[in-house]
Design a binder for these strands. Sequence first.
DNA 1: TAGTCAATATCATATTATGAAATAAGGGGA
DNA 2: TCCCCTTATTTCATAATATGATATTGACTA
Lengths: 257, 257
Amino acid sequence: MAEKTIYSVQSVERSLNLLEAIAGCENGIRIKDLAERENLHLSTAHRLVSLLEHRGYVEQEPESKKYFLGMKVLQLQGYLFKSRRLNDVAAQELKRIVYSLGETTHLAVLSEDSVVYIESLEGVGSVISRAPIGKKVHIYSTALGKALTAWKPQDEVERILHRTEMAPKTPNTITDVQAYLNELSKVKLNGYAVDRQEHSMISCCIAAPIRDHRNEVVAAVSVSCPAHDFTKESEDRIVRELMSTAYNISVKLGYSH
Amino acid sequence: MAEKTIYSVQSVERSLNLLEAIAGCENGIRIKDLAERENLHLSTAHRLVSLLEHRGYVEQEPESKKYFLGMKVLQLQGYLFKSRRLNDVAAQELKRIVYSLGETTHLAVLSEDSVVYIESLEGVGSVISRAPIGKKVHIYSTALGKALTAWKPQDEVERILHRTEMAPKTPNTITDVQAYLNELSKVKLNGYAVDRQEHSMISCCIAAPIRDHRNEVVAAVSVSCPAHDFTKESEDRIVRELMSTAYNISVKLGYSH
DNA sequence: TAGTCAATATCATATTATGAAATAAGGGGA
DNA sequence: TCCCCTTATTTCATAATATGATATTGACTA
């Protein structure tokens, strides 16, 4: 928590702002609009974006002149997995879950205030489709979110929630900070988190934390299953599989407590 | 092709260099080594990397002080519009291939000089394992590379090859620019590309181009199969499936020629 | 064909990023 | 336990660099 001094390098910050702005534009954006939106002079925006383009971070569609996010990002992402070892280690285990349970599974980490999917495997014939890798969801309505935050310091969780609008996704969604914190106590007690149609009416989800050598929760695995199949029995079966999977992955990451 | 002037913004370029350097370090890297490697003064490197850290692009492991790629990259990837649309659209079709052929399939795009995998599905019980998403491979030894470059202007392909060391991966690898260009003519004639143990002795691979509304090749799908199973019959069967898959995806992307 | 709007390029200048040097924080050895 | 050495972090004056104004090019429309 010890606050580090924050350095500012104007041109770099502007570049990152531009990159993220372009990233957020599904249909691309023209340089002029971009400059306006970011309050930059046209020539400045153009110079910075040209550089990003040259480096492959953004691409310009020749005919519309609109800028889109570039494929370089994918390459970076490829390195991310390698560097984190998580994926390599987790891939085998996820496959095993899918084979044994036939349900869709996800691997996710916490990034800033969000749950970010970093791997997913769709159950053969499963009704629940996998989330695209890189997708962000809120912490408050998902089992993964609960599993990823349950062991964090409470004040940190509160801070995240205060920055988040806890809009109800379904009638079951937890929309109250205190209620969420209570839920987290249960998660810690059980060792796993459950989403009972809180994110979507069609599915329920169970998630378990993955820990590294420091005993820190660094990721979480989940299994989703159709709400109408979610009985006490299936829940127990999934929990058993999931906990052992999460444990195996943790051990491979160096966890030994 | 008209050469654009390349702008340079020192601090931004340095930041991107640092980001990419960190990305390439599987085991993380300390600021001092990073500064040395990039020929930057320690304080400059530190300032820039701190900024990247603050923005979530890199993360510093507290005890070792080493820097790793951050999770922000995943969020960006989630925004990758083109590829996401591509992924959504392609996912269904890839699944179909896996079901019908039982072989591992890949979806890739060209980024800079490389083939980059953006989606992969492993065939149930297949010997060929899927490449990790984000992985880069050279264009000259893979069916995907051929499919992605065959319809590009020849001079562009030549330029890529001249920047690439065409090292033989197997005795079958094409290591000569002219031979590769000839191969591309065949690809264009057939409408699909084949790798006959050119990248690895254990597998063969067939790839077909995916086009968008402009008729441009924007991606390619491939099916890999064990070399010993690669008969004329299996080739035909795969080609048939693959071509219709590539066509379906193209149509969904707006292709209509 | 002229006129408009947006993208791209050039360039002098002031702002900003820089490197040097100081400080803080660990970590290992005596 | 304490000291020394290494490395991370911070500060700050200055020169180099990024900036915005302006000019040019190009594409589209009426």
